[in-house]
């Protein structure tokens, strides 16, 4: 490999790394929780809503150590995060999140709560009662821990993502 080419590769790597260092991500799920350590079984602290922007401080596997704009820090799983810029409109709920600049206003658009309402009006045969009921069936980390303990199920070291 020529010296010039390896220099060019190093430059590209440097630019890529500096972009990662300054990475800002958005919460892409309805709600997620900051955790004290990079594990779902770790204690959860603050709940973060859809669209919340966070700065990435450190990456460990699929986990990101992040800081919110109000200064709270903790760990989030990358499945809860997106690189897309999402901005919350003041006073609105999750369906009213829009994207910045040239980015498409995907959040709250497309197949959204509004479209679901329209779909339900036109399709009286579909049954959302249980779908709504299911949404309430949450399981806490404590309940998961207890489930594993009682069943004698021992996760592998580092098995929990």
């Amino acid at each position: 490999m020529s010296r010039r080419r390896s220099g060019a590769i190093a430059l590209v790597l440097l630019i890529a790394l500096s972009a990662i260092a300054a990475q800002q991500l958005s919460v892409q799920v309805r709600e997620t929780k900051l955790r004290q350590r990079p594990s779902y079984l770790g204690a959860a602290t603050t709940a973060l809503a859809y669209g919340t922007r966070v700065d990435v401080l450190e990456t460990r596997g699929p986990w990101r150590h992040v800081r919110t704009e109000s200064g709270q820090t903790g760990w989030l799983h990358d499945s809860a995060l997106t690189e897309k810029k999402l901005t919350l409109q003041s006073g609105d709920t999750d369906q009213a999140v829009t994207a910045d600049g040239d980015e498409l206003a995907l959040a709250g658009k497309g197949f959204s709560e509004e479209v679901e309402r329209s779909f339900r009006e036109g399709n009286q045969g579909v049954d959302y009662r249980w779908v709504d009921r299911m949404s309430l069936w949450t399981v806490t980390p404590e309940q998961s821990r207890q489930f594993l303990d009682v069943g004698g199920i021992m996760p592998r070291e580092g098995g929990l993502r």
Partner: peptide, 21 residues
């Protein structure tokens, strides 16, 4: 739900918009 949601924590995608049910 307790079993399924606990299993999902060990998947490649533990978090979806509304969660696993």
């Amino acid at each position: 739900n307790v079993m399924g949601q606990t299993l999902a924590l060990f998947s490649d995608r533990p978090e979806t918009f509304g969660g696993y049910r």
